[in-house]
Amino acid sequence: MAHPHPAHTHPHHSDHQHGKPLIRFEHASFLYPHGPALEDITLEIADGEFLGIIGPNGSGKTTLLRAILGLMPPSQGSLRIFDCACQELRCHHRAMIGYVPQKRSVDPYFPITVHEAVMMGRAGVIGLWRRTGRQDREIAHHALEDVGMAEYEDHPLGALSGGQQQRVFIARALAQHPQILLLDEPTTGIDTTTQHTVMELIQRLHEDLHLTIVLVSHDINLIAPLAERLALLKTRLYAVGTAREILRKDILAQVYGPQILTTDQGHVIVADHHHD
């Protein structure tokens, strides 16, 4: 395996007009029971930044998001979120991180309405001892308006299309009033037109609500025009930088192999096009 060259670009946030770092990996490694999931990750994500995580199937992209959620402590090195070690991440910290997991099929008969699904986003925010009230219902309604799904509030979630369900899950994350929004393959399993609608929505939320966004995608061409920086991952962090800096054949070939092609229009073609 080729040795990684993270020095191609700088892993620290430096050139962007954003606030202080919210997430800091310092030589952090993460283990699965059968072996390493991520090794020696050093990365800072600043307040208000839009970071795209790219890499081939099984490269640890989802693990990186799970680590930020505090669900996987590092085996070595450190990870700090909101200036708090991830092992000490409390429920109220987690409630400040909205998470849209990789699309799983929702049982079409599961008895849950769109409103009930979005209200779940309020559970962690208001804590154990408070019941949801009118204000929470209004926040859920506004979140649905933000993603253009307010008219479906009373519909069964299982009756919606894949793209509509994904927008509902984004609304659930927004109902938390998060500082950070993590999205794991938000366009998987939905048609091309809807993919662009969802990505435009994410871009609008980033601009309007000044959310810090970390978005994982196997589709480099979809994420590259939107993300301010891209992080190229394959167990290790190979490179971090702008799309112009990262989307070069010599850099991408380190993780995707020689089957990677870049076109004159800046498009990337990966012959073996799996996702994480």
Partner: peptide, 22 residues
Amino acid sequence: FFSKEFFFLAFDQEMAEASGVP
């Protein structure tokens, strides 16, 4: 009393944990 937590758990336990519900 804890219906919001139990319903979230029933729908998606991992998401509930990630959203700040113990």
